[in-house]
Design a protein around this nucleic acid. Structure first.
Lengths: 213, 213
DNA sequence: CGGCAATCTTTACAATGTAAAGTTTAGACT
DNA sequence: AGTCTAAACTTTACATTGTAAAGATTGCCG
């Protein structure tokens, strides 16, 4: 035990050699995982590095700073939401309004990934000007809704924009307020119910703007 | 110069003696000021202490931890918003719908105090269970809206609740999305315009629920 | 096979939140 | 008055974080 350790042969299993397969991707995934498990406060640069088994300075070779990592995680979140919404759009429950289905899916995603959702929308689109990834991902959700509305209702872009704005803000608002515990109390209604109520009340307005539905 | 210093007479002007008049209040005010000037990231325990001229550990005699201070600042924000909304409710522009006026005032407050607003609603109502101050302040804004609706439209509490929910979520949503830079781009519409558009589109629904207006 | 650039590690530093122990003050009780 | 006590505040200390700088290791290209 007295000899000095052999530098050529590390004792413990060196997690994955020097060059990680794709550290950037691993960090983003770890970031999402931490977020889901322990919330935003636990999502620290050093903790993510720890998770993937690299030194705490390693991330700096893939992200300019912490915010850049957060932006990448947020972008991943947007992609996830976009996919879920696209899936939901295809199997619209005929009993429900298509627009309502969008809203409910939106809320459901937020409920399933609260911390991720909050990060996504609290990061600020223009906060990270260099990160085109985020900017593009951000727009994609809204664009998806817009495209869906255009396609399903067949109205022009301008009308669709107006509809989408109202729908989006209502659902986003109710979701945020719910996430922030604004409805906690003796009643504590589930988010589903609230989102349903809001989109239901909204239905006449939305339909009134659609020329032939 | 060789003598030891006289303990009874501190050399520099001891900023304000030992016992601050009302340190707690001073800290909250400083917190709001920092928030408005430099944003949430700059709102640190030590910085607030520095601002009021006390040691960095002094706040712990008035707040359990940083979150407690933030909660107090948020509560102050809620009180501010509540007052602004109450004032706005009294001088409703007759050309506008009363409900719309509420929405626009809500958005205007957020635009005037972006960081404070975000803190208020991102802190979570139940996050600080001990802080009754926050819980009470939180409810007060919504209750104010509700009372206003009841009074102005004369409909029962349940209907009013439904109206308030739709109005609140829409305006809160559009405000949050705007604050988070979701509309930044070549167009970049001002929040006023967006809030107006949303509340305008909402008007028919809201009126439809009012029995005799 | 030599060297270079990218990747990763080590070391270091300032700032933060928080705990523990000391110091000063205001006011209550003889 | 004078003394005691608890609250308000300070000092010191420590772990954790983000970040910078410099060194080590690797794959690859000639």
């Amino acid at each position: 035990m007295g000899g000095r350790k052999n530098p050529k042969q590390p004792l413990a299993p060196p997690p994955a050699a020097y060059h990680h397969g794709d550290l950037r991707e691993a960090l983003v995934q770890a970031g999402v995982a931490i977020l889901e498990e322990s919330g935003l406060a636990a999502l620290t640069l050093r903790e993510t590095a720890r998770r993937v088994g690299v030194s705490h300075a390693a991330p700096y070779h893939h992200f300019a700073d912490k915010e850049a990592l957060l932006a990448a995680v947020a972008a991943r979140g947007f992609r996830m939401q976009r996919e879920e919404m696209a899936v939901a759009a295809k199997r619209v429950d005929q009993k429900n309004d298509e627009l309502q289905a969008y809203g409910l899916t939106y809320a459901a995603f937020a409920q399933a990934h609260p911390s991720l959702f909050r990060l996504m929308y609290s990061l600020g689109k223009a906060k990270v000007p260099s990160s085109d990834e985020l900017n593009q991902a951000t727009a994609s959700v809204y664009e998806g809704i817009l495209d869906g509305i255009c396609e399903k209702t067949g109205c022009d872009r301008e009308k669709a924009q107006s509809i989408a704005l109202l729908l989006w803000s209502s659902v986003h608002g109710i979701t945020m307020l719910w996430l922030d515990g604004q409805f906690d109390g003796p009643e504590s209604p589930p988010l589903d119910a609230l989102a349903f109520q809001v989109t239901e009340a909204l239905a006449p307005v939305l339909r009134r703007q659609i020329p032939a539905a």
